[in-house]
């Protein structure tokens, strides 16, 4: 029983940051029809930027509680700088060339960002320890958890709720949904598709960077973190169905629980557990759990 509780708690914590990152991936796909392989790199950039920002705040003499603000600002800065540049300056040049070409373009971007990160931050790991102790420890039964981990779950719920509310209850969100459902029609109805594109992409970058920034205290920030993140978040959106917010949530929880179960029951299978779930979903429901069956017309 205690083991089951541990698995659930660990799974939810892992699912929380993963959901934030995967949400960005799935939104960008929904609006721009691009599966951004460089999404994992943007996560890494967010983590590095957060490490720098937290360090800067500490050296300026701010109290540790402000490190949360530093991480948030770092993610926003990454999004506002990289989002418009990458979408307007790069991706736009390749629209209409087919999804495989765009996949290659984001792959090239992945290669570039990987080295750019090393050039800016070097190859030695960063540790961001200040925020991790902010929320103290939490006891669940006989086990102690770091409070920060639960703060992440709250953050994920906030992000999910904000995106859901923004999409379904605001005028801007309705426009974005219209673009997701039908590009040509929304363009012909006067929607400024260009603006929706760069804004959606920038928001996607923000979610990736936010995920990176807030996981930075839990990990050692070092080269190579991006590739595992893109693969796992891809698994999440595949399980949920590309382009679906609810799907990303279900996918993240599924992957989180599968991984936590594997870690506690069969540690060697940690990596496989995620792919096993993904493979099962792809075999039995290739379009993902939440994708509407697309009507095909010959």
């Amino acid at each position: 029983m205690a083991l089951a509780a541990t698995i659930v708690v660990d799974g939810l914590i892992y699912a929380s940051w993963l959901f934030v990152v995967a949400l960005g991936l799935t939104l960008v796909f929904g609006v721009l029809q691009i599966l951004n392989i460089a999404h994992g790199s943007l996560y890494a950039v967010g983590a590095y930027a957060a490490a720098s920002a937290v360090g800067l705040f500490a050296s300026l003499g701010f109290a540790p509680v402000f490190s949360l603000l530093a991480m948030l600002l770092a993610a926003m800065a990454v999004a506002l700088i990289l989002g418009p540049i990458l979408e307007r300056g790069l991706l736009r040049l390749f629209y209409g060339r087919g999804e495989v070409v765009l996949l290659l373009v984001t792959y090239a971007l992945f290669l570039i960002l990987e080295d750019a990160v090393k050039l800016i931050w070097g190859v030695n790991p960063y540790y961001v320890s200040e925020p991790y102790q902010l929320f103290g420890n939490v006891a669940i039964g006989p086990l102690f958890y770091v409070g920060y981990d639960f703060a992440l779950v709250v953050l994920a719920i906030l992000c999910g709720a904000a995106v859901w509310f923004g999409l379904n209850r605001t005028a801007v969100g309705k426009i974005v949904l219209a673009v997701i459902h039908n590009h040509e029609m929304s363009a012909s109805m006067g929607v400024n598709v260009n603006r929706v594109h760069w804004m959606a992409f920038t928001f996607g970058v923000f979610l990736a960077a936010l995920g990176g920034a807030f996981t930075a205290p839990m990990i050692s920030v070092q080269p190579g973190i991006s590739v595992s993140v893109i693969i796992v978040s891809f698994a999440v959106v595949i399980i949920g169905g590309l382009g679906s917010v609810e799907g990303a949530a279900i996918g993240a929880v599924t992957v989180g629980l599968a991984r936590a179960a594997a870690v506690h029951l069969l540690p060697e299978a940690e990596l496989f557990s995620i792919y096993l779930v993904m493979a099962a979903v792809l075999i039995f429901r290739p379009e993902g759990l939440f994708q509407r069956a697309a009507a095909r017309k010959i």
Partner: peptide
């Protein structure tokens, strides 16, 4: 020595474009 992937990525974009 440290920008091999970067050069590869830029070159790849140039070829596609």
């Amino acid at each position: 020595p440290n920008t091999w992937q970067l050069a590869l990525g830029v070159f790849l974009l140039a070829v596609i474009l």
